[in-house]
């Protein structure tokens, strides 16, 4: 899940030039679940913009459960299903994550896009009304040593070798409401009888695996991850 939250309407409007004709695009997957960009939010955004005098030529969102960040789906939506309205548009306001924004550029062959949302994190949908972050997409999973809980994400400082001195009563120094990530890891490893893992030194992370931009190439039975750490292929001979 790529969690998103809509930008304030004023910020969206300020980014548009006078008489710019806008087409609103939403995503039926993550953005719909975040209530920031499903079909309902795209329709509402059209109405809110029109009320402020913005010229909106149409709106659309991928079907519920279908992602805008799939290029084929974005092309079908914009170049087939909404071809006529899209032809009238000067630009697209995207109610989706940053991947979705770029997918619209690709789908339209380079159209002008405006972000309607901020992409805030990759998260777990704990319930229909709560999404939270357990992974930072770092490219090098180390949770084998931490009972499945990611210190890069749940510790506000991303410390790998244990807690800092800032936790008070199990809460983090940055926010009295936030659990100390290392308290959670310690409790979990203790429960699992694996505190010896905590005693092991963890080397600095390889940030070359977190370089930008990264890619994944998929062949029939092979996958190749590309980052500044090099190419890593997992295939039939794995």
């Amino acid at each position: 899940m790529h969690a998103t939250i809509q930008k304030p309407l004023k910020e969206i409007i300020n980014a548009l030039s006078k008489d710019e004709k806008v087409f609103v695009v939403g995503c039926g997957n993550c953005a719909e679940k975040c209530r920031s960009g499903g079909e309902e939010q795209a329709r509402e955004m059209k109405a809110r913009l029109e009320k402020e005098g913005v010229r909106v030529v149409g709106y659309a969102a991928t079907a519920s459960g279908s992602s805008l960040c799939k290029l084929a789906a974005a092309k079908k939506l914009l170049l087939e299903e909404h071809k006529e309205e899209v032809a009238k548009a000067d630009s697209f306001l995207i109610l989706a994550c940053g991947q979705g924004i770029h997918t619209v550029i690709d789908a339209t062959g380079g159209a002008v896009v405006h972000p309607g949302c901020d992409t805030i994190f990759g998260g777990e949908t704990v319930s229909d009304d709560f999404i939270t972050e357990y992974c930072s997409l770092c490219g090098e999973c180390i949770v084998e040593a931490t009972g499945g809980l990611c210190p890069v994400t749940i510790c506000s400082k991303g410390l790998l070798n244990g807690p800092c001195g800032g936790a008070k009563e199990g809460k983090c120094e940055v926010d009295k409401e936030q659990d100390c990530g290392w308290q959670l890891i310690y409790d979990r490893l203790k429960e699992l009888g694996k505190l010896d893992l905590f005693r092991q030194y963890q080397s600095p992370k390889n940030y070359a695996k977190r370089s930008n931009p990264r890619s994944l190439k998929l062949e029939e039975k092979r996958a190749t991850f590309k980052s500044l750490a090099g190419l890593r292929t997992i295939g039939q001979d794995r």
Binding site: N161, G162, P163, G165
Partner: peptide, 19 residues
């Protein structure tokens, strides 16, 4: 290095001190 002797729980502090 530094350590917090009055931390509660103390064990994580001691494990980190050992490291």
């Amino acid at each position: 290095a530094v350590v917090t002797p009055a931390a509660d729980p103390l064990e994580p502090q001691i494990i980190k001190m050992e490291k």
